[in-house]
């Protein structure tokens, strides 16, 4: 048990280091894309440690407690994440719905803390974040339920093993429409550019983060990195067939995050009503079509 907890915490730490490095490399890639030199690849680490070294202001105990609660919730979520189809901390506890429930703890903690700051921009940002969540969850869950129906199990390792079994394609190819929906929903989860509505630095001054500075902002950055790790890993496991060894996982993770980032950097920003309308129009339609095709007709590539 203690060994499992130790492995789980190591996975969370590994996720933080991995995502922070890949985030830094992606900043460099984006810099080259814009004909700039770009920052150093470890710039994100410097940013986070600098924030932790600064003095910070408190706006009451809810403000401080919410950040710690969110960070704890996210680390707890990351502890359950399998890295490959065989390597995970808690055997038989890698059900997809565990992640859905535990991610909500982090989100709730952040919403509570941001509202505790009393800044109107923070309230607007939290409201927008929840609205965006409402928008992307519906098509995403329909696709995931289709996957669960096909593979007959909702455990991530079982889904991975189902895709790796001989004769089965990975779900991105087996369910092409569903794969596209999954990627669009991933962009919404990561808060990348067309769906960046709840951050929106030029519009609502970075939304929920508006009153954070110093140590709280540093913790929020760590939280953000681990959240991205969880979401991208979920996509890799559900749609890309997971990984048999760690290098395959790293490769797939890097590809997915970089593609999302590249798409993000050539796009503008939707308004919040456009986000909701978009998700309830095409992705929802595609997800329902895919579910009907896959479950009732049995047409799976």
């Amino acid at each position: 048990m203690i060994l499992s907890i130790f492995i789980g915490i190591s996975i969370a730490l590994f996720g933080f280091v991995l995502q922070t490095s890949i985030g830094g490399i992606n900043r460099k890639i984006i810099g080259r894309l814009q004909k700039r030199h770009g920052p150093r690849w470890y710039q994100e680490f410097i940013d986070i440690f600098k924030l932790l070294s600064k003095r910070s202001v408190s706006h009451g105990w809810i403000f401080d407690f919410g950040v710690i609660m969110a960070l704890g919730g996210i680390i707890a979520t990351a502890m359950f994440m399998p890295l490959t189809s065989t390597f995970l901390a808690f055997e038989n506890y890698d059900n997809f719905f565990i992640f859905v429930y535990l991610l909500a703890v982090g989100m709730l903690g952040m919403a509570m803390s941001a509202s505790g700051s009393g800044n109107p921009w923070a309230s607007i940002g939290v409201m927008r974040a929840l609205t965006t969540m409402l928008a992307y969850e519906v098509p995403f869950l329909i696709v995931v339920l289709t996957i669960v129906n096909l593979s007959g199990n909702s455990s991530l390792t079982e889904i991975m093993l189902y895709q790796q079994a001989a004769g089965n394609n990975i779900f991105l190819i087996a369910l092409p429409l569903g794969g596209i929906v999954g990627f669009i929903a991933l962009m919404g989860m990561l808060g990348k550019k067309p769906f960046e509505t709840y951050i929106a630095p030029a519009e609502i001054a970075s939304g929920p983060m508006v009153e954070y500075g110093g140590k709280q902002l540093g913790m929020l950055f760590i939280l953000h990195e681990i959240t991205i790790f969880i979401e991208v890993s979920l996509f890799v496991h559900l749609f890309l067939g997971g990984a048999t060894n760690i290098f395959e996982f790293l490769f797939k993770y890097f590809i997915v995050y970089t593609v999302a980032n590249l798409i993000s950097n050539v796009n503008g920003r939707f308004k919040i009503d456009q986000v909701v309308k978009f998700f309830y129009k095409w992705p929802l339609l595609m997800a329902v079509t895919q579910a009907i095709i896959a479950i009732y007709f049995g047409w799976v590539i």
Binding site: G31, R36, H37, P39, Q43, S206, V210, E211, Y212, L217
Partner: peptide, 18 residues
Amino acid sequence: SAYDMERLGMGPMATPRQ
């Protein structure tokens, strides 16, 4: 891209707290 402040690790931020 002409002078690229970001290579020194600098960048714009939205609010005074950050």
